[in-house]
Simulated assay, not measured.
Amino acid sequence: MSGLVEEGRAKVNLTLRVVGRRTDGYHDLESVVAFADCADRLTLTPGAELTLKTVGPLATACGELSDNLVLKAARLLGEVVPGLKAGAFLLEKVLPVAAGIGGGSADAAAALRLLARLNNLPLDDERLQEVALEVGADVPVCLVSRACDMTGVGDNLLPLSPPIMPSVLVNPGVPVATRDVFAALGLRHGELRVGVGDVMTEASSWPEEGGSLEEWVEALAAGTNDLEEPAMRIQPVIGEVIAALNATNGAWLARMSGSGATCFAVYENTAEARRAADKIRSEHPAWWVHAGTLS
């Protein structure tokens, strides 16, 4: 049987509200998530042995393969699905790691989709959902890989229908550990940061299907990323990235994604996004820059 292929698309948090920290230490969030048109590529060749090989321009950044979320997802699924068929994974890594765009989570989600295809499991199989959340908070939304309003600890997903958004993604090449950013936020166990009613009101106010790009940008601009300020304290270069995006012509909204350090800007059209990306590449040749779309 030939290899099966899935893409792990970059996840972008267009907004991110931290509601509070639960007594178990996890954080409750409310985040509008979209997906970019840049992705890692994961191939599964069925076989008796579960293995993983990484290739591509950022393969060396993946660290120890034994800790990779692709293998973790496969092993956890194997624990709950008797006789799970698996095989050899080949990961072509092009997305930055520890970058706030869910690269590892997207790879794990792609692995679960591949295993679901190989084993004739529907994507709404409860075991897939449970394993996705156990692997990481971003894995459930990456599993569906479509725009959603994500609440709770990543377990509640409300599908959204934003228009295609011309965009530029920029990563300055510095990793940011999510746990460090949440630690810098400084919430105690059981501490609320915003009222639950405020978050629910905000979550229900996104434009309906057919809403224009202008309507969506206006709604998103009223939101925030609560992790942006603590992430900047850890890596001040994030502020430089946002300033560089804001300095380009036609940037309607610039913000950090996730826990950083990747930032994004939304533009009126793809031509402006490409020109902005060219400008940033010329001024900051060491930065990772992608011009494309979010949807």
Rank of each mutant, 00 (worst) to 15 (best):
P163K: 04
F35N: 01
R274G: 05
E49M: 05
A59R: 05
A203D: 11
V55E: 15
G211K: 11
I238S: 05
V194N: 09
E228W: 09
G154D: 08
E6P: 03
E208C: 12
A265Y: 03
L220F: 12
E208L: 14
D149K: 11
E215P: 02
H284F: 13
W287F: 09
A106R: 05
D24F: 07
A147E: 07
V168D: 11
A61M: 04
G211Y: 07
L245K: 10
T23Y: 05
V18N: 06
G258R: 01
V12W: 00
T23F: 05
R146F: 07
L95C: 06
T43C: 06
Q129G: 09
G56E: 02
R21Q: 14
L294Y: 03
T262L: 03
A98S: 15
S2T: 14
L213W: 02
R21A: 05
G104L: 05
S66Q: 13
L143W: 03
P46F: 11
R21I: 06
G102H: 08
E240S: 15
M200E: 15
V196C: 01
A73T: 04
E126P: 14
A74Q: 04
N13W: 11
P140W: 00
D155L: 06
M150F: 09
H284D: 08
P96N: 08
G197T: 12
G103A: 12
N249D: 15
G3Y: 07
L95D: 03
I238N: 06
N249R: 14
V81S: 03
A265M: 10
L58Y: 03
A98R: 10
T45C: 06
V144K: 12
R17V: 09
L157N: 11
R117N: 05
N269W: 02
P172G: 07
R179V: 14
A251F: 00
E214T: 13
V153D: 00
V176M: 13
A99T: 09
E191T: 12
T201I: 05
V181Y: 01
E92H: 13
G211E: 10
K72H: 12
A273D: 01
R146C: 09
E7N: 13
E214I: 06
D149T: 13
V12Y: 00
A276L: 07
D278P: 04
L42W: 06
D278Y: 01
G47L: 04
N156W: 07
V97S: 15
L169N: 10
F264W: 13
L77M: 09
D180Q: 14
N225P: 08
L169P: 02
E79F: 02
G83Y: 06
E209A: 15
K11L: 03
L52K: 04
T54F: 00
G239Q: 12
L121H: 01
W206P: 04
L158W: 08
P96T: 08
I234W: 09
A221E: 10
A261Y: 05
R146Q: 15
P230K: 13
G186K: 07
W206L: 15
H27F: 07
